[in-house]
């Protein structure tokens, strides 16, 4: 790590958390308002890129779920594929989605297989695009005199 910007490195820590929280909020908001897994995933990627610019790509990769870009991508893909199965078991076509509403006292919690699908999309987008972005940023790091080989 040669010439990292100190201010960025310090600010990155709270910003990373804020962006991730916002991305989760956008993901959950997609239930019946604009938002959803794809946009949320893109925001999460921007958090990863921020960390990569501030602390290097290796550190950003380590902060991804399970420490690598491929893991969230694969788990997200499987989750999205599996979300269609309950509908199938319930007698509908594949990807027929089911909704439940849980009453928790004053509030109510909306659950659905769509949410599962959306979380899958979120993870897949985060993993896949973060993988691309980190690979591209790593090319740049190699060019710097003190960078990784």
């Amino acid at each position: 790590m040669t010439s990292r910007i100190v201010i960025l490195a310090v600010v990155a820590r709270p910003l990373y958390l804020v962006i991730l929280l916002a991305s989760v909020w956008v993901l959950l908001r997609g239930h019946d308002e604009p938002g959803g897994g794809f946009i949320g995933g893109l925001m999460a990627v921007s958090a990863t890129i921020l960390w990569a610019v501030a602390h290097g790509t290796a550190a950003a990769r380590a902060r991804l779920p399970l420490g690598d870009a491929l893991w969230p991508a694969v788990i997200g893909l499987l989750l999205a594929a599996l979300s269609g199965v309950p509908g199938l078991l319930g007698g509908g076509a594949y990807l027929t989605h089911l909704w439940w509403t849980l009453a928790l006292g004053p509030a109510e919690l909306k659950l659905s297989t769509v949410l599962l699908f959306d979380i899958g999309v979120y993870l897949a987008v985060w993993g896949a695009l973060a993988g691309y972005a980190l690979a591209l940023l790593a090319v740049d790091e190699r060019d710097q005199p003190g960078g990784a080989p």
């Binding site: 896949a128 691309y132 690979a135 591209l136 090319v139």
Partner: peptide, 21 residues
């Protein structure tokens, strides 16, 4: 168009990485 943008985005990412390499 959203689907096409997503796919196009992935391909642009790939092509940039490829061209750099």
């Amino acid at each position: 168009v959203l689907t096409a943008i997503v796919i196009g985005f992935a391909l642009v990412c790939f092509s940039l990485a490829l061209v750099l390499g």
